[in-house]
Amino acid sequence: MDKPSHLSVILDLSPTQWALCAQSANPTGITLQTFLSQLLAFLNAHIACKDENTLAVFGAFPGQSGMLYSSTGEITSARTESTDANTYRPFRTLDSTLMTLIAERLESYDSTTEEAPIGLVGCLTKALCYINRAITTSSSSVTEIEGAVASVDPRILVLSVSPDQSSTYIPIMNSIFSAQKLKVTIDVCKIFGAENVFLQQAAHLTGGAYVQVERTDALLQYMMMSFLPPPAIRQLISVPTQDRVDFRAACFCHKRIVEIGFVCSVCLSIFCQPVPVCSTCRTKFPIKTLQRLRDARPLAAAAPPTKPLAPKNGTATPARPG
């Protein structure tokens, strides 16, 4: 029998980016309203697939993050929903809870002050914690009866509109590694804006799909075809993955995204320029090597440094954050 699957959705709800997205002409933008209505149809479709499917929605707001909905009923809207015989009740609860909470949260933002960076990492870690708890409780309780395979088939879907923040490189990489360990697939849907290097890597490393939406009017169809199939079905139905992955990493010293970096030979920290002492593990490097690396730097192509971080190509594994 097919297993139930768990989906955690992370919504990027940066007011500024959504405003930009709504005004954008090329590619045609999409307003937050339209996006949310299409999203709700997608979320309903996920619950519709199987009675046991579970869902959690997390919102990334400027400078904060929080859970907006969970099918285990941890978050409930204060507003009691009216009776409606035309809608399946779980759908109705989901829709009203989600919409009320998003509206409440977004209203509380002051449009005059400058927007804090988006709390995407917070969401990612919260989603992972949620999944971890779901897995451990289910494995200790009765649902485990059929053995380890019976546990939920978890995945995370990130719907992103904001650009990369290089300062979040380390926490994002850490999240990716935990996701790999938990066997969580991370899918990424980039609705607006340029390609997102870190999220691309997240999708690639966890075996998820990365979709850059080109036609926002068909957003629902994109989501249905790429993100609805649970990982088990993806053996049978092909899901778009990216053929070219940007493997660039951010350096630990200035949080810049670098093409060629210098890696500490002890702890694998990445730096954009040769340093005498590793800032992470305090290893001292010989002056001679340092000199050699400095000399080689401007002519990186002709004489590569001893330890360049191989960028761009699929062969390189990303550096482990310190």
Partner: peptide, 13 residues
């Protein structure tokens, strides 16, 4: 069924 609405009342009154 997925978007809700309509007037069928098929989900039980």
């Amino acid at each position: 069924a997925i978007t809700g609405g309509g007037s069928s009342g098929s989900f039980g009154v």
